[in-house]
Design a protein around this nucleic acid. Structure first.
Lengths: 351, 351
DNA sequence: TTGTACGCGTTATCAC
DNA sequence: GTGATAACGCGTACAA
């Protein structure tokens, strides 16, 4: 087996508590013994067993980040900020990936028990059927980037995100402001009860507000049940739209990856972007700026969201009894070259 | 604090060992008591503390996957396969992200101690300066997708990857076969001692074999020290190439993300792909198939690599003393629309 | 300043 | 089939 604290104690001719003190940087220890011990630690390559530590310590100063779908570059990009901000606050971060078919609330509960966590962050996931289980979690947690569809429910959780309804509306408003009236949406599956549903609601509101009738054929649900926000799904859903024969001048894709997939479908069909079809994505992912043409997108302030998530969690750890807050950030349109300005006779906007 | 095994024992009026047996599915226990206990477990929401478990158990049947740079979609895509294959072998997988500035060998050592791991997989990272520390690791480990530049070194580690020299050569051979002679390469930094160096070596070999002189100006090192394989770096490195004024008809980018970045630079400069500049990437990432134009790339068999990595590790866990193996997979050209066939007078190939 | 001894929650080894 | 009890490796109160 590997070297333990007792081995080091024996080697140095001291007690285990002295080794513990040296390793943990306590001040109540002779400088020379400390150095002698640390030398042996290095020499014999002693690493404290964290399981034993966690078993003993009450405050681990550790928080966990649960990511549902790390393969989503949107989350991957935030990871760095989470790591930095956690460190800045003097905490350790455990990053835990949760696969598609696993319940993140279960994972969270286990992790809390196992690691004596001080707090938790959920990134992705947290659909409504998971939310019931969230009440079992005994430590503060923040739901990041996820909008909760039911407003009553939403108040019960600490959250940092954009308002997906408002931002969905903002994206569609932008298309309308550019003269578009027949706007299709590449939506998630009809079962989706998370951000997809909210952004679709925003789509509906934008049309309604401008007195544009909603055409059911222009609301195209995900062709694939799994991975709704993938390139492939964007492609297939766009093909469904093309095949429907419905006419439209602009398309709102629920994510940038879907937008890229859709772009391929349109280009393959001989359509030009934006001359024949205007396209707007959602998220503000890097790929939109490198695509040809550059895809206009609704950018989420990911860095601000990540930072606010950590500081909210830290606050909750300090005073756990206070009311749950919801922080809502604003998105903004990142203009690319994928939206054309239409000049309708009945609606000539300036600029 | 949370409910422990003793609480459940008290509640059920049994001993702790009986609870342990029930929870761990042992057979030497009365069916009725088992059910009674499991009911209480569910009812009182008991989750065994994993730290205590790991402290006690000898064989955890757990392996860890250390990913350096999870933000790389190339790795993210393999994650699922790793998770599935591990489960198929009856093991648990701990996925651990290692940030850019952290030494993965240190993380590995800690993790082994903490979790009593049976084995380890390194995905990404493992540059030569890390390799010295690898010898401290007491459990079997496999280095996945990383080529080691020094052949002497390479024999010392269990590895699964493509031969980056050969595949780099294959990519450039493909360009040469298509009539290209002035081929630029968007390389990593000159300090790179990993796959970037190997692929560059392959570039050199391909040119040499075809009697094409190497033009130093066409070997462009990464413009950014950090994140060599990013979109941004591809873009900036391509701009450096354009600004050099050197003439070339084709470009080999060391990764698909770099290729996408480069494509933007070329298109912005008014060049057409592939009419003015042919472009080939490396990895076979999904985005190449959705880009406009579809980017020709050298595909790595990621799924096979992931599967082979797990089965190699399982073998090593069963018989740790055997010699380290190296499994080398072949890549293949995934033809897109980014490479033009040149018809040179002195070299007319068929088809 | 240092060492002894206890307990963290669990599993495994015994007796019964 | 079941229940005490001894580890597992560590941190820490308390005694020295």
């Amino acid at each position: 087996m590997s070297v333990t604290i007792r081995d080091i104690a024996r080697i140095c001719g001291v007690g285990v508590s002295t080794v513990s003190r040296a390793v943990n940087g306590h001040t109540d220890i002779n400088k020379e013994t400390r150095e002698r011990i640390l030398e042996a630690v290095k020499r014999y390559n002693y690493v404290p067993n964290n399981s034993a530590r966690n078993l003993k310590k009450l405050d681990t100063r550790t928080i966990a980040l649960l990511i549902k779908g790390i393969e989503n570059p949107f989350f991957a990009r935030m990871l760095k900020t989470f790591e930095e901000e956690t460190k800045n606050n003097g905490y350790s971060l455990v990053v835990q990936h949760v696969d598609e078919f696993t319940d993140e609330a279960d994972v969270a509960e286990k992790l809390v028990q196992e690691r004596r966590l001080n707090g938790l962050i959920f990134l992705g996931g947290c659909t409504s059927h998971v939310q019931n289980k969230l009440d079992h979690i005994e430590v503060p947690f923040v739901i990041s980037t996820i909008g909760i569809a039911n407003p009553e429910e939403a108040k019960r959780y600490a959250q940092v995100s954009v308002d997906d309804i408002r931002e969905g509306k903002r994206a569609v408003d932008y298309l309308i402001d550019n003269g578009h009236g027949r706007i299709a949406i590449l939506a998630a599956s009809s079962l989706d009860d998370s951000v997809g549903k909210l952004r679709l609601l925003g789509y509906g509101r934008a049309l309604k507000e401008h007195g544009i009738p909603i055409i059911p054929e222009l609301i195209v649900s995900a062709a694939l049940p799994e991975n709704p926000y993938s390139y492939e799904n964007g492609y297939k859903t766009a093909r469904k739209l093309l095949n429907s024969g419905e006419t439209f001048t602009a398309v709102f894709a629920l994510s940038d990856t879907m937008a890229v997939g859709a772009a391929k479908a349109f280009l393959e069909a001989g359509k030009r972007i934006p001359e024949d079809i205007s396209l707007i994505g959602f998220d503000g992912q890097e790929i939109t700026r490198y695509y040809n043409p550059v895809i206009t997108t609704l950018e989420q302030p990911t860095q601000e969201i990540a930072r606010a998530t950590i500081s909210m969690l830290m606050e909750m750890i300090l005073s756990p009894e206070q009311e749950k807050k919801q922080i809502v950030f604003e998105g903004r349109i990142l203009e690319g070259g994928s939206v054309r300005k239409l000049e309708y006779p009945e609606k000539r906007s300036d600029g």
